[in-house]
Nucleic acid binder design. Structure first.
Lengths: 342, 342
DNA sequence: CCATCGTGGTGTATCGATAAACCGCGCTGG
DNA sequence: CCAGCGCGGTTTATCGATACACCACGATGG
């Protein structure tokens, strides 16, 4: 039975409102009364109930980040960056998991869990643009999706096609001729499709033919999938001298697979990843990878979210801000898994 | 202006309570009325306000995990495991970050409490036993700390000393004679101290002398710290033929440092980590590491938390459950960074 | 033939904090 | 001499959902 505000009020011989005022400092309170209240608070071990405050005030100073999975390094780093920024503005980040499934994401959204937060950053993976379009929520939401989502929402994306093109072009420019696309897929609209597109485009630009047999899909376990992809390539006897792995985690698995197969990196096979995770620089050899401009994306996401949150009080549909779709700048971090020349 | 329950009630021509009953299914409602209500809900795009429900019900079906940092693989994996278990019992996990500092942990705990989570799993790092002892909380809390905390709280720990002893003993048994302790510290009570203790103990048991000069502290950035430790060892010209890194992340950095220095693993230098992260198996060579019995720890933590949550309604101090301190079983996952024989 | 029960609903108090209105009181200025 | 005001509070209404008591009405049973 936690102490409530009126317990404190009674103990201090004042009204609840006075206790509230002392605690929030929103109104002047006599020094004497103030001390009595604080003493009572201390005495009863009282703690403010944020739920109640939220109900009344409509603000939580808390932003949620909904990610597909807790155990993906990319999202961990994303969360850390966001938390740092939010902390600076006196706010708070909590992370929730959607389970990387369409159902999970929908549940995370419709379950009205959203109302617990001032705003939500939603990493869309499983949901289709249609699902998103159907969302009826009044809570400020910014999508961190990979694919292009309906205009109704703000969205921050990576430039998947360009990043993939950069990665593949670099492999081709440094001498690789048969570049596998690990994590790719020939259909859909998601990240995998877009990066496959970039991979294809780089081939075209180099006047080369992309071989669809080198497109290897990934499943749920990136590390194992990356290794498995190499195993399959080797088993199939398909010649390959380069790998564009669609995430750094997949690339890590790929490196393991190559080592297992006795293939040297970058001498026999060059490898490029995507994400530029903290750990990638420390792999042996250090991973060449696409840097999706983390900081720029973080900045954009928070700017868009704040814009929505500011507007919230009025919520005048007339003055509705025009949703923005921004795309981060990509670049290539060249390291040890690729050669410097052909 | 989001639609409220009474908006729905008005639209459907029923009372608020009936709407509530339809939505929660807690009471029987006539099929006809039910349909009208659902239609109105759909029509107005109504979303349940969890904040209000929580305020009234006093339950959230949500458990919070407070970790030092979002961007540490260990905590990501921990969160994923916990979420999986909680999901199975119809509950929900949210993750918060404390910033690895004493203040951060205290603040996070306060916030967590205020948010009316049903329970909190707190990864203690910065707080001292004294801080913990001072905590006055009515919310179910289970500590996931490294060091031993006051009896008043349930706590799940790794067997740090034994794990470190195992790791070091393995290095010594397979021929290493000068084993660096990367991430170690000669004082304090925390994880670093305990693992240093295990490192020392293994030496004693082998009748060898542990050299304090081989204890290298780590800072905030494990990956860089691991690499830096090797650089320092090499620069100092201190001979060493084994490394016990206090986390797998440090070990990853160590491997990078060794590669940079042209030292072969495991031929010139053997390496053992601690944590058995998912990625560790995929490093090249695959990392030998201490497995802290993740599943057992998860099970224990949730069992203890549930016990506290069950008891919560009554909260009779007389029937208070006796707090438990459990320690997970550690074992060694032997892989490629160590040899099989001396 | 009346007491009892089940069905499908309604009314009201309540969770804890807070915004806004209000209220004595002593002081000041015109 | 009185309107006006700053100070230090108190009262009241409210946020949105839900627990609980209650009620009308028809069916059931002994």
């Amino acid at each position: 039975m936690p102490a409530t505000m009126s317990d404190v009020a009674r103990a201090a011989g004042v009204s609840v409102m006075t206790v509230s005022n002392v605690l929030t400092g929103r109104k002047r309170v006599g020094e004497d009364t103030r001390r009595r209240v604080l003493a009572a608070v201390d005495d009863l071990g009282y703690e403010l109930n944020l739920t109640a405050r939220h109900l009344r005030a409509g603000r939580t100073n808390t932003v949620a980040l909904v990610v597909p999975r807790f155990d993906h390094a990319y999202f961990g780093e994303l969360a850390a960056r966001l938390a740092r920024r939010l902390e600076a503005s006196g706010r708070h980040l909590v992370v929730e998991q959607s389970g990387a499934s369409r159902e999970g994401e929908l549940k995370a959204l419709t379950l009205a869990r959203l109302h617990l937060y001032d705003g939500v950053l939603l990493s869309v993976v499983g949901m289709t643009p249609d699902d998103v379009a159907r969302l009826r929520t009044t809570v400020p939401v910014v999508l961190l999706g990979e694919q292009d989502m309906p205009d109704r929402f703000d969205q921050v994306r990576m430039d998947n096609v360009e990043g993939a093109r950069l990665a593949t072009a670099h492999l081709l420019a440094t001498g690789s001729r048969r570049v596998a696309a690990v994590g790719g897929s020939r259909s859909g609209r998601g990240m995998t499709y877009l990066r496959t597109l970039g991979w294809r485009r780089a081939h075209e630009e180099a006047g080369l033919m992309a071989d669809d047999a080198l497109v290897l899909p990934a499943g749920q376990s990136d590390l194992a999938d990356g290794r498995e992809a190499v195993r399959r390539l080797v088993a199939a006897g398909a010649p390959f001298d380069g790998v564009f792995a669609f995430t750094d985690t997949l690339a890590t698995g790929v490196l393991a697979g190559l080592a297992e197969a006795g293939l040297r990196v970058p001498d026999d096979v060059q490898v490029v990843g995507f994400d530029n995770l903290d750990a990638s620089e420390f792999l042996v050899p250090a991973l060449t990878t696409v840097d999706p401009g983390h900081d720029a994306m973080t900045d954009h996401a928070l700017r868009l979210l704040d814009r929505l949150i500011e507007r919230a009080p009025g919520t005048d549909p007339g003055t509705a801000v025009e949703p923005e779709h921004v795309t981060g700048p990509v670049s290539l971090a060249v390291r040890g898994t690729t050669r410097h020349t052909a």
